[in-house]
Design a binder for these strands. Structure first.
Length: 282
DNA sequence: CGTCCAGGTCTAC
DNA sequence: GGTAGACCTGGACGC
């Protein structure tokens, strides 16, 4: 790996993926698809352009990085693209006659945030509001962070008046602030959820549900970003989209779960791919 | 203008 | 266990 000053940081591990950005701020341009965002690398914030080149994921920065920063950036990008995930067991489930067989070309690599903390907070910002409100809230958070998502300590020490008056987060502000305080104080280690290894999904789900502002929808959403694909993300966007795609007039949550149960631990990923196939241009 | 509700969650029955 | 109401905010509506 090399990096800085126009030299790309590249990853030996091949990814064949259609990255799906589920959370702002992110923009995908194309072709060729480029994903850009500012990342906090050590003490400073750098803009990083990430793209696929010859079967490799390449991250490039405008400014030259120290080798320690290259190391750190590599770590962050590997997390975001979940490079340690092996989706082959999922692909093995998708036979020729499977409606999701198309996904075996490399779909399903969910793009996460560099930290679990960021994914948790942003997910709270998607609840019970319009997408434009989510964008407003996350833009304010990024502004507070000086161009990148703020550290837990920053959010913990920011007064409630900022949450209400600037970010206009409404009742979510208290949830976000209290989670930030827990993390900043060391009482809660959200990042450990990413490397929870063989810890059962149920246990991870319970941990998430204990957080203020995190309910069934948010827990399932964060788990998808953690590479735990068993839960279906059920909300006011996915439910109607499912109905539209299947031509059904109504469908209980239980019947949607049943319809995807055959994908086992990948049921939630299969559901997500089923719903977002039209996001992928062919 | 008032009402409804959006990529829900919490509390109180 | 299941369900009603409240909850910040701000667009999209109907009147």
């Amino acid at each position: 790996m090399r990096g800085g000053g126009g030299e790309p940081v590249s990853f030996a591990r091949t990814i064949r993926s259609h990255g799906c950005a589920t959370l702002p701020p992110a923009r995908i341009e194309g072709p060729p698809p480029v994903y850009r965002r500012h990342l906090r690398v050590g003490a400073r914030i750098v803009e990083v352009a990430m793209r696929e080149r010859a079967g490799r994921l390449v991250a490039q920065t405008e400014t030259r990085l120290r080798s320690s920063e290259v190391e750190r950036l590599s770590e962050l990008v590997a997390r975001m693209f979940r490079l340690s995930d092996d989706l082959s067991p999922f692909y093995a489930l998708l036979g020729r006659d499977d409606p999701l067989h198309w996904a075996t070309q490399g779909a399903g690599r969910i793009l996460a945030s560099p930290s679990v903390f960021e994914d948790v907070i942003k997910t709270i910002c998607t609840t019970n509001c319009t997408w434009s409100a989510t964008q407003r809230m996350t833009a304010a958070l990024t502004e507070l962070g000086g161009g990148a998502f703020p550290e837990p300590q920053t959010l913990a020490s920011t007064p409630p008046s900022w949450y209400a008056g600037v970010a206009r987060m409404g009742y979510r502000g208290a949830y976000v602030r209290s989670i930030a305080k827990l993390v900043a104080s060391g009482a809660l280690d959200l990042e450990a959820l990413r490397d929870a290894g063989p810890t059962a999904d149920d246990e991870v789900e319970r941990s998430l549900l204990e957080l203020p502002g995190i309910g069934p929808y948010a827990a399932a959403h964060v788990m998808l970003l953690l590479g735990r694909y068993g839960r279906l993300v059920l909300d006011s966007w996915t439910r109607p989209k499912y109905l539209r795609l299947t031509g059904r007039r109504r469908a209980a949550d239980s019947s949607m779960r049943r319809a995807f149960a055959r994908y086992g631990p990948y049921a939630g990923l299969a559901f997500w791919l089923f719903l977002t196939r039209d996001w992928i241009e062919e």
